[in-house]
Design a protein around this nucleic acid. Structure first.
Lengths: 350, 350
DNA sequence: CTGTTAGCGCCTTCAT
DNA sequence: ATGAAGGCGCTAACAG
C-alpha cells in the first residue's frame, strides 16, 4: 500500500513551483494579487498535472455541495413511465453538469421515506437543492421542504399551495388538443383510462377532459382510473365495453397502459382505428414501433428536465424563481386514430 | 437574510450540553472514552435536534466521499434499454444507500467524455468508485480506470482484459435455453436480430447462438445486426424474409426492437406464433402487455444492480473483488412461441 | 474519563 | 506581489 495515493494537493504543486499556496489559489480562482508571469506558469503546471480542487475541501469551505438531489418514490405506479424518469434525469444532468453540479439519485419506498431522505440530506448539507416530481393531493413534501429550507423545484406543477416554484406542463391545453382531434374525427363517445387519480397531474387532466368534452356539443365521456398497472388497464378497458354504449375512442394515460389496453381491445374483437381510435398521452418508442402506431402527445422530456434544472439554478442563486410553463405538448397523429396516417413512419425513429 | 441558517453544528450541541466537542464526537461514533451517562445524554440531545455530521467535513476528514458514480454514455443505442438503466440504478442505490453511499448520476455524449468524467471525479475525489456498463470491443475504460486507480465494477462482464472485476450474466447459458426451447418446438431455421455488435455482451450472445445452433442437428441460423433502432429492426426483419428459406422463429435483442420487428412481421402478413415464433432477450412490461405476449428471457435487473453494488462495496473495502456471475436468466414462455401459453397472464403484472 | 490540540485541503483576510 | 495565519466542521491523536 502506498502511503498516500490519489491526486496531488495544492500544497504540492505550490512547492514544486516554489511559490506559495496562496499564489496557486489566486491563479486558480482568477483573482488579482499575482503577476501575470507567475499566474501563467502556475496555470500551465496545473493543466499538465490535471489538478482540480478537492471536492470535499471546497464544499466545506464554500458551505455548499454543488449537488442536486433527485428522489424517486419507487411505488408500483412509478413503474409506468420509466423512460420518462431517465429522460428527465438526463435533461437535468446536462444543465446541472454544465454549471458544476452533480445529480444525486435516490430511491425511496414511500413518500414518508422520501421526506426522511430530504431531512438527512439537509442535515448533512449533502445537497443544495432537490427536484420534486409526482405531486399528489395533500402532498406533505412541499411544506416539509419549505420548513427545512431546502431549495426545490417541482417538475410538473403547479404546487397548489405555492410553496415550491414549478415548471409545469399545460395539461389542460394538451387534453383540449386530444379531445378536439377526436371530435373532428367524428367521435362522440370518448373513454379515458387514467393513471393514479391521486396524482395531481392526472387529476388536472381528468378535469380538463370532462370540461372539454362537456363544451363539445354532444360528446359524452367515460373515465376509468387505474393504478398504472397493465392488469388494471385491461380491466378498465373491458369495463368501458360493458356500458350500453361503448366509446368509439379511448385515451390512455401512458404507453404501458396503452399497450395493455390495445391488447384488450383486440381481444374484444375490435380493430384500430376502424372500430375504436386510440390516443396515448405519452409518446414513446414503443408507440411508434407497434402496429398500428399510436397517436400520442409528444413532449420533449429531456428539454423539460433542462428547463427544470435551469429553474433550480435560479432558485439556488436568487432564493426564488418564478413559476414557468413548458410548451404545450404536440399531438402526433398516427394510425391509431387515422388509418391513412403514419404510413412512411417506419423509417423514422423517435 | 439570517446570518447563518442551516443545521446545527457539533460545537453548538456540545456547548448547549456543556461538554466538549470530543465527547460529542465519541458519542456519535460509538467509541469509548466517555461515561454511559453523558453518552446517553448526548445521544438524546442529538436525536432530538436531528443533527448529523456535515457531509463535506466528514468526507474531508475521512478522505472519501461515500459516493459512487454512474455514467451513461447517452449514445443512440442506449435508448433501447431505458427501463434497464433505471432498474439497475434502483438496485444499485438500494444497496449502496444502506451502506451510506450516494449514487451520482452523469450523462456523457461519448466514451471519450465518459473518460473525462472519470478523470474529473478522480481528481476531485468526488467518488470512491464507479459502476461500468456496456463494455465494447477495445473499450478504453477499464485501462483508464485502472490507471486512475479508481475502483470500479463492471456490470455485465467479464472484462476480457481482466482489469476490472465484474458481475456477469450467463449470456451463453441463456441463449442455449432459447435455442433449445425453439428447437423443441420444432423450429429448424432461426433468425436473430441483434443489437449493436460492437457491444461485448451482444457479441457473446451471437457467438453462443451460432455455436448452439450448430450443435443442434439440422438447425440453420441467420444473424442480422442493428444499432438498436426501431427502423433498423424493421429492416433487419424484412431482410430475413428476403432469403429463399425464411426463418420460422426470430429472436430479438430487446423489447424495443422486438415490438418493431413484430410490427414488421405483421406487415409481411405473418401471424405469431402460427407462421413465426418470436423470442425477446429482455423481458419487460411491454412484452407482457402486447398481444401476443412475448416469450422472453427474464432476469431480475434490480437484483443485478444490488449484486453489482455489493461487489463494488467489496472492492471499496478490500481493494479487489472476485468476478461473479448472476443466475442464468429464465425463459418465460408466452404466446409468441406457444399459442396455448400465457392465457391467464392478463391478470399478472410483471 | 475529560479537555486541549492539531489537521484533513482549500480559501482568504491580514501583514510583509 | 507575496507569505503567514486562521477557519470551514469534524475527528483522533494527545495530555490532564
Amino acid at each position: 500500500m502506498a502511503a498516500r495515493s490519489g491526486p496531488p494537493r495544492l500544497r504540492e504543486i505550490a512547492e514544486r513551483l516554489g511559490v506559495s499556496e496562496t499564489a496557486v489559489s489566486f491563479a486558480v480562482n482568477g483573482r488579482p494579487g499575482i503577476s501575470e508571469a507567475t499566474r501563467k506558469r502556475i496555470l500551465e503546471s496545473i493543466e499538465e498535472s490535471g489538478w482540480t480542487p478537492n471536492y470535499a475541501a471546497r464544499a466545506l469551505f464554500e458551505a455548499r455541495s454543488s449537488t442536486v438531489g433527485f428522489v424517486v418514490a419507487r411505488t408500483a405506479e412509478a413503474v409506468g413511465s420509466e423512460s420518462f424518469f431517465l429522460q428527465l434525469m438526463t435533461g437535468l444532468q446536462s444543465v446541472l453538469g454544465a454549471s458544476g453540479y452533480g445529480l444525486l439519485f435516490q430511491v425511496a419506498a414511500s413518500i414518508e421515506d422520501e421526506l426522511k431522505v430530504y431531512r438527512g440530506w439537509r442535515a448533512q448539507q449533502r445537497v443544495d437543492g432537490v427536484v420534486l416530481v409526482d405531486l399528489r393531493a395533500d402532498d406533505p413534501r412541499p411544506a416539509e421542504l419549505a420548513r427545512l429550507g431546502l431549495p426545490a423545484v417541482l417538475a410538473g406543477g403547479p404546487d397548489p399551495l405555492g410553496l415550491v416554484p414549478s415548471v409545469s406542463i399545460d395539461d389542460a391545453g394538451a387534453i383540449d388538443v386530444v379531445v378536439d382531434h377526436l371530435r373532428a374525427r367524428g367521435h362522440r363517445r370518448i373513454g379515458y383510462v387514467t393513471g393514479d387519480p391521486g396524482m395531481l397531474h392526472v387529476g388536472r387532466r381528468v378535469e380538463a377532459f370532462r370540461r372539454r368534452a362537456g363544451e363539445q356539443d354532444g360528446v359524452t365521456e367515460a373515465v376509468v382510473s387505474t393504478d398504472f398497472s397493465t392488469g388494471a388497464a385491461a380491466r378498465a378497458t373491458r369495463r368501458l365495453w360493458q356500458e350500453p354504449e361503448p366509446p368509439t375512442a379511448v385515451i390512455y394515460e401512458n404507453e404501458v397502459i396503452a399497450v395493455a389496453g390495445v391488447g384488450e381491445l383486440r381481444a374484444l374483437g375490435l380493430s384500430i382505428p376502424q372500430d375504436v381510435a386510440v390516443v396515448c398521452l405519452e409518446d414513446s418508442l414503443i408507440g411508434t414501433a407497434m402496429r398500428p402506431q399510436l397517436t400520442a402527445l409528444h413532449r420533449d422530456t429531456g428539454r423539460f428536465g433542462q428547463d427544470v434544472a435551469r429553474s433550480l439554478l435560479v432558485v439556488l442563486d436568487d432564493g426564488a424563481a418564478p413559476d414557468s410553463q413548458e410548451r404545450t405538448p404536440e399531438l402526433v397523429v398516427r394510425a391509431s386514430t387515422d388509418a391513412d396516417a403514419g404510413v412512411g413512419a417506419l423509417s423514422t425513429d423517435l
